[in-house]
Write a protein that binds this DNA or RNA. Structure first.
Lengths: 78, 78
DNA sequence: TCCCGAATTATCGTAAAACAATAATTTTGT
DNA sequence: ACAAAATTATTGTTTTACGATAATTCGGGA
């Protein structure tokens, strides 16, 4: 995916576990895991908001564009 | 909202109109307007991907956390 | 090498909302 | 004043975020 999720590295930098963050944010560990592993297809601003708040970081620290236009979702593929 | 959308300024910096971007991204002008004005509650990564690609910018240029924990969506409010 | 807690993965269900399509109204630049 | 751009409004469809739950796997001690 062209938009990459860097939750893992920010968590590590903060010395926080997924479990702790999920508790703070109020999201299940399962869903945080999906987000963390890049399997989520989108996200609510309210969720990014809480994540950034509790990790004390900015959106750009967690989500980054790798320069590639992903066409996985353009009808005609596969 | 604690997650702010800076589409307007990036567009301006690129000298591009909303109409042009909506055509490139493949989203309606109406929906881009909602996003641009901060009325959207979330976004798909596929959409951010295209926006970043066509505006040649990173996620952090468009979405920023203003440091405030927004509670507008926490059951008990209002 | 057991344990145990953390993390991942998988299912199923629900509610939210992204986005399309369309059209009307408003704003803005010239 | 005019035309293009942008906003706003409506309605409908479909995606999917996220909850709840549970089973499986991974990882670091003791």
């Amino acid at each position: 995916m062209a938009i990459k999720v860097y939750l893992e590295e920010v968590l590590k930098a903060r010395g926080m576990t997924s479990k702790e963050l999920s508790a703070l944010v109020g999201i299940t560990e399962a869903n945080l895991s999906i987000l963390r592993s890049g399997k989520a297809k989108g996200i609510r601003f309210s969720t990014i908001n809480k994540i950034c708040y509790y990790l004390n970081c900015d959106v750009g620290d967690i989500l980054k564009f790798d320069g590639i236009l992903d066409m996985e979702d353009t009808e005609d593929h596969e």
